[in-house]
Each structure stands twice: as C-alpha cells, then as structure tokens.
C-alpha cells in the first residue's frame, strides 16, 4: 500500500525542514567577519604557497580506476569467504570465473603498458614520421613531461 510510505514522506519533510531552518537560523545569528587571512588557504599555519586548484597528472586516473575495480573484487570476496562452506562448489566456480575475468583485464592493462608510470616513447617515435606536425608536438610534450 502506498499509505505505508507516508511515514517516509513525513521523515523527508522533517529532514528538509530541519536542515533549512537550522541553516537559516545560523545565517541570522552567526557573526560574519571575513578577512584576507581567514579566507586564505589553510596550510597548518604556514603561509599558503601558490594556488590550491592544481591539476593532477592524468596518469593517476588509470591507476585509480584499476584500484577501484580490484577494491570491489575484494568487497565481493569477503562475503563469499564468510559463507564459503554453506554455498559449496557452485559459488566457488562462480567466484573463480569472476576473478579470471578480472585477471584477463589486468593482463590486458599490463600488456598495454598502462601500469608503467614512464610511457614507452620509442613506440610513439616509430609512428611519428607518418603523423601530422600537430601530433608530433604532442609527442614532444610527452617527452618533456616524462
């Protein structure tokens, strides 16, 4: 019955009102005294150096992605390990297939050289002659970054 969800709705309304009222009330009574030092970046009392919006190297992205995948794998393996005796061989083969699929992906990533921090420039060089000048610039940039 939909009426059973009425309590959820009431909780939703009360939750929204609670946040809205307390934020509004806080805005009315809180002191607002911004100054240059207060608005500057917090660096444990040191004088902040540079800008806090820095670019991260895009090479972190692939590492983070692989980490998330294997993190989730562990997440699946723990509950399976807890009920290992009860589930028996069917679950065992299921998990084995799951791990094998991930391992194939891992081997692919390894083979493509995505795990290398320093990218293989020599392979890029071979194709450099065929490429347009624009793409040659990007190879030079890659060299400089490495």
């Amino acid at each position: 019955m939909m009426i059973d969800f009425a309590s959820v709705f009431v909780f939703l309304i009360v939750g929204i009102l609670f946040v809205a009222v307390s934020l509004l009330l806080a805005r009315l009574i809180r002191p607002a005294e911004p100054n240059v030092v207060k608005m500057s970046n917090y660096e444990c009392g040191e004088e902040p150096i540079g800008f806090s919006w820095i670019n991260f190297n895009v090479r972190f992205y692939i590492i983070a992605l692989i980490f998330v995948i294997f993190d989730v794998e562990v997440l699946f393996l723990f509950p399976w390990a807890v009920v290992f005796k009860a589930t028996g061989w069917v679950a065992f083969w299921d998990v084995l297939i799951f791990i094998v699929i991930l391992l194939v992906g891992f081997a692919y990533v390894w083979d493509m050289g995505d795990l290398n921090w320093i990218k293989d420039i020599d392979n890029l060089k071979e194709t450099e002659e065929n490429n347009s000048p624009d793409e040659r610039i990007s190879t030079n940039m890659l060299k400089r970054i490495n």
Partner: peptide, 12 residues
C-alpha cells in the same frame, strides 16, 4: 603561525 591559525578560526 599562531597568529595565522587564530585568524583562520571562525568567530566567535
């Protein structure tokens, strides 16, 4: 540093 930390605290 103490002065800067104090300045970075919100009032009151």
């Amino acid at each position: 540093r103490v002065k800067r930390l104090y300045d970075q605290m919100p009032s009151p």
